[in-house]
């Protein structure tokens, strides 16, 4: 399959701190690709290199078949995590402006901006100033500014952070629509359920290095199956007991739901039997392991994520 993005041996250092270390990756065209990883892992740095905001120290980036990412800037769309609007600009003007910066002529950009804003329910706000928008509306406007010019590859950095459920749905639908139109979408997140829901592929980056990549199924296949449990009652004491009794190899308690991993040779039914006496089981679902669990296990195996203090210390040391 043709690739929308190919990274090869990508490395970026800030002083002595290696932000991205020897990263190689292929993002197939028309797919939705999730970049997952803890804070400070190097997701944003990687994205910024693809957007030619940073230059890599080593390695190559091939975007939409072009080895010079700057040459295809206009065919990309980028929504940074830190995003803002010109407060005094009118809503339709700023969307149109972002489109024009991507090479649309003024007329087309204006027309499309109005059409898109109306379609996304912001018809009443066309001529209002951006400072009048609520946070959710502002984020919608930013998203529209990112996709107005019909980019072939869209990169969204933490697009779901700070969204209410309604707007989360809008964001998810937009991402799915883009795939339907044949565009490629890369987004970064550290909320695993979102990645699991939407992505065709995920790449996990941890401590500046890629630790996982592949389709969701491939990533999960390495980790076997698990039991997803919804329950009422004092779960943690029960799960600890089951683990002591040798029924469970490990477990993850989320409060009213949990993920349980039976020990080798233990049938799922045995676990269920032990559970029903102690808690109210609302759902008992034997399925593949969650992406969340994959994430946590990977982090555990690869060492703790770089602590914020550690990053700070590294940064301070560089000064």
């Amino acid at each position: 399959m043709e690739s929308a993005l190919v990274l090869d041996g990508l490395t970026k250092r800030f002083g002595d701190f290696v932000a991205v270390d020897d990263l190689s990756l292929r993002v197939p065209r028309g797919s939705i690709y999730g970049f997952i990883g803890p804070n400070g892992a190097g997701k944003t740095t990687t994205i910024r290199m693809v957007m030619s905001i940073f230059y890599p120290d080593q390695g190559t980036i091939t975007v939409l078949g072009d080895s010079n990412p700057e040459a295809v800037k206009d065919r990309l769309g980028y929504l940074p995590e830190e995003k803002g609007l010109y407060k005094t600009m009118k809503v339709h003007e700023i969307v149109s402006y972002f489109g024009q910066l991507k090479g649309l002529d003024r007329r087309t950009a204006d027309d499309r901006a109005r059409e898109l804003l109306v379609r996304y329910g912001l018809g009443d706000w066309l001529d209002k100033k951006c400072q009048a928008l609520s946070k959710g509306m502002g984020q919608k406007v930013q998203l529209l500014g990112t996709i107005l010019h019909g980019p072939e590859l869209v990169i969204l950095d933490e697009p779901f952070s700070g969204l209410d459920p309604v707007n989360m749905d809008v964001m998810r639908d937009t991402i799915l629509d883009m795939r339907k139109e044949g565009r490629t979408v890369i987004f970064s997140t550290h909320v695993m359920t979102q990645a699991e829901e939407i992505c065709d592929y995920v790449m996990m980056i941890h401590r500046s290095r890629k630790v996982l990549d592949g389709t969701i199924a491939q990533v999960k296949a390495q980790h076997g199956r698990g039991i997803r449990l919804a329950f009422d009652g004092d779960g943690s004491a029960v799960f600890d007991d089951l683990q002591r009794q040798g029924l469970l190899a490990s477990h993850r308690d989320h409060g009213r739901e949990a993920e349980l991993f039976p020990a080798a040779g233990v049938a799922d039914q045995q676990v269920l039997k032990a559970l029903v006496d102690r808690v109210v089981v609302r759902r008992f679902d034997v399925s593949e392991i969650s992406l969340h669990e994959v994430f946590v296990r990977t982090v555990k195996k690869a060492g703790q994520p770089i602590a914020e203090e550690e990053i700070e210390a590294a940064k301070e040391g560089l000064r």
């Binding site: 905001i53 929504l79 940074p80 995003k83 910066l101 930013q142």
Partner: peptide, 13 residues
């Protein structure tokens, strides 16, 4: 401070 820079820099140098 408005965080506009990154959006702009993804389009212009």
């Amino acid at each position: 401070s408005n965080r506009l820079i990154e959006v702009l820099l993804s389009s212009v140098s």
